[in-house]
Simulated scan of single mutants.
Amino acid sequence: MAVDFPVEIKNLRTTMGTVREVSDLDALRAQITDLEAQSAAPDLWDDPDKAQQVTSTLSRAKAELDRVENMDSRIEDLETLVEMGQEEDDAETLAEAEKELEAVKKAVGELEVRTLLSGEFDQREAVITIRAGAGGVDAADFAEMLMRMYLRWAERHGYPTKVMDTSYAEEAGLKSATFEVNVPYAYGNLAVEAGTHRLVRISPFDNQGRRQTSFAAVEVVPLIETTDAIEIPENELKIDVFRSSGPGGQSVNTTDSAVRMTHIPTGTVVSMQNEKSQIQNRAAALRVMQSRLLLLKKQEEDAQKKELAGDIKASWGDQMRSYVLHPYQMVKDLRTEHEVGKTDAVFDGDIDDFMEAGVRWKRAQEREKD
């Protein structure tokens, strides 16, 4: 079926009109002007942490503005390409235009999804924790595969990440891992990844080559900011210190620098061992603890009935996405019904389509409740 270029281009322009309206480009330009003034201050680097924050925020704001503004010219270029192909009846040019149309539609769709991220914490950076569930060594291996998948996703987009804690399983894989994705809207995008993930494959750890089903739980919480940090009384925290360890129990640290922090009233536990000192690990653990308690407080205020991310069972009957490697290849989200057959690409971080479908699904669920 021939592509109806005029209709497709009209739809793109309509969507971009909505994107510009919601994005509030005037406010974004004002923010850039303010950040440029701050970055030009002669004493900026007297405070390296603040300077880094100003320069990185400025870079991201400029990139965000460019993405929106450049899309308009890209649509105009597409229209010109279509006109050239049609005037000269050039099939090769029209084929190129069709290919570009698909690329532009994908890019505009990504911008549109950003406009759907209007939740209270959606603009925040994110803290992701992955825990091995039912399935023994296969589950631990699956947890490590998921961690790599998310880190590769971030790497593909140029998003900075920071691994905060890794607890290795005895034979292979991870018992749990916690890491940050330090980019605006990381929480809004990644929140839809929270839940139980299920893997079906021929187990590489079974000498009889039997099929194994295993589970891993993904928790996503927004990274707190200094303005909303929750004060936690010291008597509500239990702090344990221990020696950091690498795979198989191999010592990677000769001092008791790792920290396990427990919030006694809620039973929330955070472990940190990837910083160089006990003081740094304690500060990192406190920040993640505050992030989790902030989300808990928000959920209680909203009287939400659903289970908290940390209460995910990671077992049968609780899964939100299946990764099947045998007897066929498929990754399917059980909420959105989005599925693909290229499992290797997914585990290599190609999960944008799943996140986009998840954000749209989540927004539709919220509209139904309103």
Rank of each mutant, 00 (worst) to 15 (best):
residue 364 A to W: 07
residue 299 Q to H: 11
residue 364 A to M: 08
residue 330 M to D: 14
residue 277 S to D: 09
residue 321 R to A: 10
residue 346 V to T: 03
residue 282 R to A: 14
residue 338 H to T: 13
residue 312 I to T: 12
residue 302 D to F: 08
residue 315 S to L: 07
residue 286 L to C: 05
residue 277 S to E: 10
residue 272 M to F: 09
residue 264 I to G: 05
residue 276 K to L: 06
residue 334 L to E: 10
residue 275 E to Y: 13
residue 321 R to L: 13
residue 357 A to D: 01
residue 247 P to K: 01
residue 347 F to P: 03
residue 359 V to W: 00
residue 359 V to K: 00
residue 282 R to I: 11
residue 283 A to K: 14
residue 259 V to S: 03
residue 269 V to Q: 04
residue 328 Y to G: 05
residue 274 N to I: 09
residue 297 K to A: 15
residue 266 T to I: 11
residue 269 V to H: 04
residue 299 Q to D: 09
residue 353 D to N: 08
residue 357 A to I: 01
residue 273 Q to Y: 06
residue 318 D to F: 03
residue 244 S to M: 08
residue 269 V to R: 02
residue 355 M to Q: 07
residue 333 D to M: 01
residue 364 A to V: 06
residue 274 N to W: 04
residue 357 A to R: 00
residue 272 M to A: 12
residue 254 T to E: 14
residue 357 A to M: 01
residue 347 F to T: 06
residue 272 M to R: 02
residue 363 R to C: 08
residue 299 Q to R: 10
residue 349 G to Q: 03
residue 246 G to V: 12
residue 273 Q to I: 15
residue 347 F to N: 05
residue 285 A to M: 07
residue 338 H to A: 06
residue 309 A to D: 05
residue 305 K to W: 11
residue 344 D to R: 15
residue 351 I to Y: 01
residue 270 V to R: 00
residue 337 E to C: 12
residue 351 I to W: 01
residue 341 G to K: 09
residue 356 E to M: 15
residue 342 K to F: 12
residue 304 Q to R: 05
residue 305 K to G: 15
residue 288 V to F: 13
residue 361 W to T: 04
residue 274 N to G: 10
residue 354 F to I: 00
residue 354 F to E: 00
residue 288 V to C: 08
residue 271 S to K: 08
residue 327 P to D: 00
residue 291 S to M: 05
residue 332 K to Q: 02
residue 316 W to N: 10
residue 247 P to S: 06
residue 359 V to G: 00
residue 326 H to F: 15
residue 359 V to A: 00
residue 244 S to Q: 09
residue 265 P to C: 04
residue 303 A to V: 12
residue 336 T to V: 10
residue 324 V to N: 02
residue 343 T to W: 08
residue 313 K to C: 02
residue 254 T to R: 12
residue 256 D to W: 14
residue 249 G to I: 13
residue 262 T to S: 15
residue 330 M to T: 15
residue 293 L to I: 04
residue 305 K to R: 13
residue 320 M to Y: 03
residue 319 Q to N: 11
residue 266 T to A: 06
residue 358 G to Y: 00
residue 276 K to G: 07
residue 319 Q to V: 13
residue 326 H to S: 13
residue 262 T to P: 10
residue 249 G to H: 07
residue 364 A to S: 10
residue 284 A to G: 03
residue 275 E to T: 11
residue 308 L to I: 11
residue 341 G to V: 12
residue 302 D to T: 12
